[in-house]
Write a protein that binds this DNA or RNA. Sequence first.
DNA 1: AAGACAATGCAACATTGTTGCAAAATTTAT
DNA 2: ATAAATTTTGCAACAATGTTGCATTGTCTT
Lengths: 138, 138
Amino acid sequence: MLYSIIETLKRNQLSITDSRKKILELFLKSKGALAHADIEHQSGTEFDRVTIYRTLQTFVEKGIIHTIPTADNSVRYALCKDACSEGHHHDDHVHFMCDDCGTTYCLDNITIPAVNLPNGFTALQTDVVVSGKCAKCN
Amino acid sequence: MLYSIIETLKRNQLSITDSRKKILELFLKSKGALAHADIEHQSGTEFDRVTIYRTLQTFVEKGIIHTIPTADNSVRYALCKDACSEGHHHDDHVHFMCDDCGTTYCLDNITIPAVNLPNGFTALQTDVVVSGKCAKCN
DNA sequence: AAGACAATGCAACATTGTTGCAAAATTTAT
DNA sequence: ATAAATTTTGCAACAATGTTGCATTGTCTT
């Protein structure tokens, strides 16, 4: 896994630093999405809060992770699929947030149904956030 | 309009106060959704920040307004249709956010397409946020 | 190994949101 | 209409979240 972490960073022309390795590792280990606070807690006092903010920002810019719009307007991040690249995210999949355990899933296999817009409106991106109970909590 | 404002407050068993009248008026005048900051600016120094927070909270609880999940995770509010009642929101419509002018629209007439979930997942609510260009900016 | 460059940590600050409590306003009862 | 009961407001204080500048440290290039 360490190999793929370093590979990912190199592929995105990012220098290999402790914080980037650690944060990327957290994403690879986590099944669901992570909030800034999750990362701050899971990495202990190892890194400065500001470093985490900047690392997340960098990862989003590079297309390594993407933000997830949530019903409660908390900011969460999840790993992008390979299709994402710098400045252009392809996160056209459904996000599911469990009301019980709070886990956020990226349902990669479910494509977003087309939405008919009124005349004059053009869509660039469509986000679908479903909330309810996940398989574990049901 | 003043009449309907007071009517709305009374119908929801809320006492008639200056801040509630003013904030409800702002929503009725506005075509799109409003963020806390919008309300703070548009009402000048008339009300305390805390009062605005509490008023918005009360309006959400009463089903007068609902929150909108946005791609940039900023909190916005919009008037509910009549179908909304205390503790139970029926905001099952598509939200559109214009990348140019920033206006957020509730597309009341467009219903949310059903989403197929994996086995074991049950949906309680589905939010759809489309971003792109609105009719004015196109 | 040294210089160029980029990332980090720290401090300071801005924004956003929450809570307790006394003062003021609204509603209810007289 | 007035007084009592109840709500709401404003203030202060605090907590959480996010941003910026800059010196120090670490990484990369040659």
